[in-house]
Simulated assay, not measured.
Amino acid sequence: MKAIGGAVSGLCLATASFADTPTLRAAVLKFGTVNWELNTIQHHGFDAAHGFDLEVQGMAGGSAAKVAFQGGEADVIVSDWLWVARQRAAGNDFVFIPYSKAVGGIMVQGESTAQDLTDLEGAQIGIAGGPLDKSWLILRAYAEKNHGMDLAGQTEQVFGAPPLIFGAATSGEVDAAINFWHFGAKMEAGGMRTLLSVAEASADLGLDPETPLLGYVVRGAMLRDNPELVEGLAAASRDAKDLLASDDAEWARLRPNMNADDDAQFAALVAGFRAGIPAPGPIDEAAAGRMLELMYDLGGEELLGTATELPAGTFAQTGS
């Protein structure tokens, strides 16, 4: 396997001079929700307990994290497995470890008269993530299947960064909005309601809403040469999730880092994170394959490149 971006053997682990414990460098969005889990891992020493030292590098955006990872400046990033599948199809040896199944939905104001997607005909929809946002594509497929509706053609879309869509939605500037799950939680806390969740739409389309979309991404060389390190990362993640699933005091400790404006937002963020915790165990690759095929039908090469089917080895089937 050729080195990616100059990283030797696809793996560039720093090692403390005074110990043999490898340092795992995670490049993540500086204010992303994954930081709550990573903070928990570091605070409770779950990384040391599983044989590594976690170093978190805050990045300005997801693209910057990917550049750092591909250039060998980071060992781990967070992305969706569809991106990993695209990279593997292109010859890049990346592997996905589940992190979260949290997804949002299409939301409207609490007083809106809309009852289903057909009521949005002619409406303006704010969408975070762009025209190839996975949630938007799934909702479009649902609308076509159940209502014979071309959601893209029969509505007006406004694309923007998540904070901008949040502002436009809560102010009523747009009639409906699709945003990342944590912004959706804040929108719900502010009185908006979910017209249709992505989980509901996915299940209706024959997909498995339990399939985690987001995860930690590592190089395949790490899995081959240091499988205990990949298992350690997965185990530390699971330890943090188990704590966050049940311990309210841990969330109280994290609250200053959560950007929650009030108690309602805080409670919604905690509930949303907990709902997104995936079950332990291996990913159902058949279910993932069905999702990829649907995403390719909707987004084509622009979304998935040459990944017309799930590439072998996309998922690290760890024990956690």
Score class of each variant (00 low, 15 high):
R253T: 07
L223S: 04
A199I: 05
I178F: 05
L195N: 04
S112W: 03
L233G: 01
D248G: 00
D208E: 04
Q265W: 11
L214N: 11
S135D: 10
G319M: 04
A152R: 15
E309A: 15
S79E: 13
S320G: 02
M291Q: 14
A161R: 15
G104A: 10
P22Q: 08
L292Y: 06
Y142C: 06
L214G: 04
F96N: 06
I165K: 07
L254E: 01
A14C: 07
V34W: 04
A312Q: 13
M107C: 02
R86W: 05
E173S: 12
L223K: 08
N259I: 07
L29P: 01
I138K: 03
G300L: 14
Y99A: 08
A203F: 07
D262P: 01
A161P: 03
A90H: 03
A49Q: 13
L196W: 03
G299L: 05
T306M: 12
G299Q: 04
A102K: 12
D80S: 09
G148D: 06
F273V: 02
E37N: 13
G220I: 11
F166I: 00
V8A: 14
G276K: 09
E73K: 15
A152W: 14
G126L: 04
D263V: 04
S17M: 11
D53S: 14
A234D: 01
L303R: 09
G281H: 08
A74I: 07
S79R: 10
L303H: 06
N226E: 09
T211G: 02
L117H: 02
E144F: 04
E200K: 13
Q87D: 06
K101D: 02
T211E: 09
D262V: 01
P162M: 03
D284C: 03
R224C: 07
